[in-house]
């Protein structure tokens, strides 16, 4: 059994009277691919933000590689070797693709090694033709790809992605799924998503959120077939 890289214990987040995340306990192992799904307001994004330090959970604990990181600042969590991509694409608009990826690589490498690493990531993601272009001039799909490049350049052992396929074309989604599978060779990947098509194509273990709690946790095919999940979340169309 691979080592557990991410674990939460009774993770709870309240905003005033609303309990967005309610006693969630998760375990993700090394090189595992895990999707967190659920309808809007189920608490998956809030849970995600607690994992990467953007929110401080009201109760409960987060452990990364056995170390308690509850309430840490995002930069400390990222510095441990955790690659994070938020829902809204977030890049350095005024800088080139190369400069963006170099900056991600520089965190764990010296200047020269970071330049080489950036080169390698640009090749892997086929970003060569636009390497010198400012991010502000790129299309949405390209920006998303560059942001994945930022995550890759950090050589993470845990990757947290919030809705990576949002707003992408069919072809781009397929490519995204390939990239994510490639990432699992060296890292555990946690994906928050509600595009069912995309989740099917990832074919991974799925944790279904409902009203802040974990409803089921199983392989995607069995989850889809589960009548409770269909009733509560997926509705009749799925």
């Amino acid at each position: 059994m691979a080592e557990t890289v991410l674990e939460t214990e009774g993770l709870t987040m309240r905003f005033g009277g609303v309990t967005a995340v309610d006693g969630v306990s998760l375990k993700v192992r090394a090189r595992e691919l895990r999707c967190l799904i659920g309808p809007n307001g189920a608490g998956k994004s809030t849970c995600f933000k607690c994992l990467c330090g953007l929110l401080k959970p009201t109760e409960g604990h987060v452990f990364l590689r056995g170390e308690e990181t509850t309430g840490w600042d995002p930069h400390r969590i990222a510095a441990m070797g955790v690659g994070i991509k938020m829902q809204v694409s977030s890049v350095m608009d005024g800088l080139s693709v190369q400069e963006n990826i170099w900056m991600a690589a520089r965190r764990h490498n010296d200047t020269g090694a970071a330049t080489a690493k950036a080169e390698e990531v640009i090749d892997r993601l086929a970003l060569g033709p636009i390497a010198r272009t400012d991010l502000g001039r790129l299309a949405h799909g390209e920006r998303q790809r560059v942001e994945l490049g930022l995550v890759m350049a950090q050589d993470p052992w845990l990757v947290l992605l919030d809705e990576p396929a949002a707003g992408m074309t069919g072809e781009e989604v397929t490519r995204m799924a390939e990239i994510i599978h490639e990432m699992t060779r060296s890292a555990a990947v946690v994906v928050v998503e509600h595009d069912m098509q995309f989740i099917r194509s990832l074919a991974s273990t799925v944790t279904v959120f409902h009203r802040g709690r974990v409803l089921v946790e199983d392989h995607v095919d069995r989850v889809m077939a589960d009548p409770v999940v269909r009733d509560v979340y997926l509705g009749k169309q799925a």
């Binding site: 990467c52 930069h75 400390r76 990222a78 890049v91 350095m92 800088l95 965190r107």
Partner: peptide, 11 residues
């Protein structure tokens, strides 16, 4: 250019 992104890179 983007404070939050740079902090999420671990700086």
């Amino acid at each position: 250019e983007n404070e939050e992104r740079v902090s999420l890179l671990g700086y």
